[in-house]
Design a protein around this nucleic acid. Structure first.
Lengths: 192, 192
DNA sequence: GTCTATATTACGATAGAC
DNA sequence: GTCTATCGTAATATAGAC
């Protein structure tokens, strides 16, 4: 990700993605975007109608990327339960947090239905996809069939997102790993 | 909480608390604080040195309140495991998120060691306190002694914090409840 | 303790030349 | 497509009267 973009429009989107990740929508100004992308005022307003329009392009791409990276693991090798574990344990930029999840804390993003939609859809999809994998794991007898797949999936996504929060609070990426370990430890009680 | 403050200094702190909760530090301006508190420019700069100084008072109080509310349940009636469940299921302003946890997403708060400290200490304390309760629950035979208390505690705090994230993404408080249900469902596999 | 006036810089966008 | 100039408003604070 973050391939070095060659054209101005592309650099604007990638710079905005990075800034939204670091500082959120409220904390990101057009001026900063222009400085980081190396594009001038005029270029930005030529390619996009304004801050919100550019943010939409950035958010949409980050959401797509997050989904694609997850799907690559979910549809990859291993049993369903193994793939979920692989996803939870995969290498992450923990202290930077989740580029999509952090937008849920941004009042101006959540207040704008257009900006909000990609965020909402990403998490709806992620929870549904993991629900399906958990159901598969149950069908294969990998995990206890008494677990509610949807609730368990939501809990696992929450551990992931909350893992970023507690790790950032501690300024220690290891705390994220501990949260995941704890969740998988609990899940292990239901393994067959 | 949010008792109606009578003096100006108090109104400034309470208004700042509310605004930090809604919009974060980056999204909150002194002007907005003055408007909401009914205090004038001069009053604010008389009582506090500036935005950061006022935010410190607000953050410190929110952190203390979060801790006190948790401790009231943790040291309350019921077995250790029951008290943890009571805490996770207690009524919450889910769609508003956690007033302390949300600050971990605020770049200017995390960059300032003084503002950052109360946030860090709150989560360190919360994880440690729940670790202790889980160890107690194990000693009483309430839950499986094979679970790592510290990792489990961190996972439960993460579910809570991540529960806010997924609920806000869905604009549905019920999603928070689902995350907690899922986590407790997993934990139930280790109940005795 | 509170008020108004003022200062400086940034924000977010538009206008129009090139 | 990109540049510079400009605009109106807001952010964050200081100065000094009352």
């Amino acid at each position: 990700m973050y391939a070095r973009p060659v054209d101005t429009r592309e650099r604007l989107i990638e710079s905005t993605r990075a800034l939204l990740w670091e500082r959120g929508y409220v904390g990101t100004s057009p001026k900063t975007i222009q400085e980081r992308s190396g594009a001038g005022q005029g270029s930005m307003y030529h390619h996009f109608r304004g801050k919100a329009d550019l943010a939409l392009a950035a958010i949409t791409r980050s959401a797509e990327e997050m989904r694609a990276r997850a799907e690559a693991i979910f549809s990859g090798p291993g049993t369903p339960a193994q793939r979920i574990i692989t996803y939870l344990r995969r290498e992450r930029d923990v202290l930077r947090g989740c580029p999509v999840g952090r937008l849920t804390q941004d009042p101006d993003v959540m207040a704008d239905p257009t900006l909000r939609r990609p965020v909402e859809r990403t998490f709806v999809w992620l929870r549904a996809r993991m629900t399906g994998l958990l159901a598969e794991a149950q069908a294969k007898g990998e995990i206890d069939s008494e677990l509610d797949p949807a609730a368990t999936a939501t809990a696992l996504v929450a551990v992931l997102q909350g893992g970023y929060v507690v790790a950032r609070a501690a300024a220690d990426a290891e705390v994220y790993a501990q949260a995941i370990d704890g969740a998988l430890g609990m899940l292990a009680g239901h393994a067959r």
